[in-house]
């Protein structure tokens, strides 16, 4: 099918797209890389000079960096755990025939369409607020002290908000995967003497493995760069309790006006994301084998 001539033409034809995509990535990346080696502070314009790895040294030895790294991993891991476990559970429920199935499915998907800033605001003011929040009202109704979520458990609160946003996505993917399970396989297992729990462990879960890997991969990409929810609710605080790497880079460059340090943080974040990506790709490669 592919002669040398047609292969040449094909390469020629896709080259504009490839060159554009490459440029789109290379130009900002190399600029960031360049800035990360400069003393570049917005408060001292015109005083940029080459300082080598000093920015990296400061960023990587900053105690805030390790806290942010831990927070990033906790955020990604926590949200993944909630969405995958909750998604499997919800998909199992939604897969059962019941009255009003169509409406319920749309309701379940709805949070995914709410913008991150909006949903964070809604959670902050309607649920978590220690005076006006629904949780505070519920606590008071039961005679307990209201709990100030964002002040005392900021990271957990953000994990809850983000998990709420991503649960529909996981549910949707897992539900479609569950619907593609051959009913004869379930019936065969039933005749083989497998109860509901055994069927779930031996038939449903292996069938969902692939879909779960896809959910984990896609969500990790987005969860590593969570920003809006933190900015709207806690501003990374108290202290650095809810600061992740993305927020730390923002704080470094735009709150402390240290563009050079921020760029160094950005490059560190890119390296970290790639390390995570390598692990994920290994995992995916294994589970996508037939």
């Amino acid at each position: 099918m592919a002669t040398a001539h047609s292969r040449m033409t094909a390469r020629l034809m896709i080259s504009p797209a490839v060159i554009m995509l490459l440029g789109w990535m290379i130009v900002p990346l190399s600029m960031t890389l360049y800035f990360s080696f400069l003393r570049y502070n917005l408060l001292m314009p015109g005083m940029e000079e080459w300082i080598g790895f000093t920015n990296y040294e400061y960023f990587l030895t900053d105690p805030a960096f390790f806290e942010a790294l831990g927070n990033t991993l906790a955020l990604v891991g926590g949200v993944l755990a909630i969405t995958v476990i909750g998604g499997v559970g919800l998909a199992l429920l939604l897969d059962q025939p019941f009255f009003g199935q169509g409406v319920v499915r749309i309701l379940v998907i709805a949070p995914f369409f709410v913008m991150p800033t909006v949903s964070a605001l809604v959670w902050k003011n309607m649920f978590f607020h220690p005076v006006n929040g629904l949780f505070a009202h519920a606590a008071k109704g039961m005679g307990m002290q209201p709990f100030d979520f964002l002040a005392h458990a900021p990271l957990l609160s953000i994990i809850l908000i983000v998990a709420w946003q991503w649960l529909p996505f996981a549910t949707l993917i897992l539900l479609t995967a569950m619907q593609s399970l051959d009913s004869e396989q379930q019936e065969a297992a039933e005749m083989d003497g497998a109860g509901p729990l055994s069927r779930f462990i031996y038939i449903v879960m292996p069938h969902l493995a692939r879909a779960i890997t896809v959910v984990i991969l896609i969500q990790t990409i987005f969860l590593l760069s969570i920003f809006a929810e933190i900015l709207v609710t806690t501003n990374g605080g108290p202290g650095y309790a809810s600061t992740n790497i993305a927020y730390l880079v923002y704080a470094q460059s735009l709150l402390q006006f240290d563009v050079g340090g921020g760029s160094a943080g950005g490059i560190v974040a890119v390296v970290l994301a790639n390390i995570v990506a390598i692990f994920l790709m290994r995992m995916i490669g294994k589970s996508l084998e037939p």
Partner: peptide, 21 residues
């Protein structure tokens, strides 16, 4: 009686083998 307790075995049209085993 539930299917598993009837001591019957069934061969399905699609074979219904468990693909991951």
């Amino acid at each position: 009686t539930p299917p598993a307790k009837r001591r019957l075995a069934m061969v399905f049209q699609s074979y219904a083998l468990y693909p991951h085993m």
